[in-house]
Amino acid sequence: MSFEMPVETWPAAVSTVTLGATAEQGGTRTSTVTVGGEATLPFLNFEQETPNRPVIAMEVFDEQPSEWPAPLEAAYSDVWGDPAQWAQKCVEEYGADLICLRLASADPEATNASPDEVADHVRAVLEAVGVPLIIWGCGDYDKDNEIMPVCSQAAAGERCLLGSAVEDNYKTISACALADKHVIINEAPLDINIQKQVTILVTDMGVDPSDIILYQTTGALGYGVEYAFSIMERTRLAALGGDAMLGMPMLAVVGAEAWRSKEARLSDEAGAEFGWGPQEPRSILWEAATATIFLHGGCDILTMWHPEAVALVRRTIDELMA
């Protein structure tokens, strides 16, 4: 019998977004990252080439994280007191495509650093590395509304990705993106309608749809990964079907979620009780497997923690793109 490839046609494509700006473009980045542009489902090269490979942002915290499990401590304890050195290590040793700087020190529950202090951290990281930056607030809405304008200005013209605009708190960050030429992350709590709503709110503020990345709060493997996976698939199908309010590249927070799981956190001894095997390969694989599922959901930007998980996922992306 003759076999015909079941090729499908899609009326629309995902928007293409470039992060980072070089000197010519008004910034100081030595490289930029372009994501999106897909005109089919992930990696179906028989239908359409994937124009831009998914990228990995390695996360850097602007103060030393507390109680990180041993495998992360082993990777980062030499640099985790200094975000600039930490970012440098991620780029130079581990080949990060971009750096996701978490302004954890601003958290009123923690150090409660001032806007000027955290902006200094942003400047230091921008100076230390040439890759584009994601700058993510501490999660406290009021505090983020204080720090983000100062940090955004400190990075003006760099086309950073700012996180995050949510339904109840999107105005300040939208204004930052507009004023200082950045891109923003639209966040929704695993809800496709809220995701659309945030996009509508943010574009109403004047943000261009090509300056938006979508993010649905993520769950790790074993902890709700399938919700995020299915929401991503639905979002991507809607995008390819022509829904412009969902037609942007997607981001997933992988490291933070995967490393909350018991499977990643339990030590060798504690894991042995369940017959789970040694912590290092177990935790690394947990992070990598979580990431890989999101790749199949259509995710364009993965934020990750462990360098070996990053290496594994990069190889998987190579294989899927081939």
Binding site: L221, G222, G224, V225, E226, F229, S230, E263, G275, W276, G277, P278, P281, R282, L285, W286, A289, I293
Partner: peptide
């Protein structure tokens, strides 16, 4: 047969095949 390798496979399957 290593748990380190089998566990993520079992969990991926469990998650993907749950009834939404």
């Amino acid at each position: 047969t290593d748990a380190v390798g089998i566990l993520p496979m079992l969990t991926t399957r469990l998650n993907i095949y749950t009834d939404p």
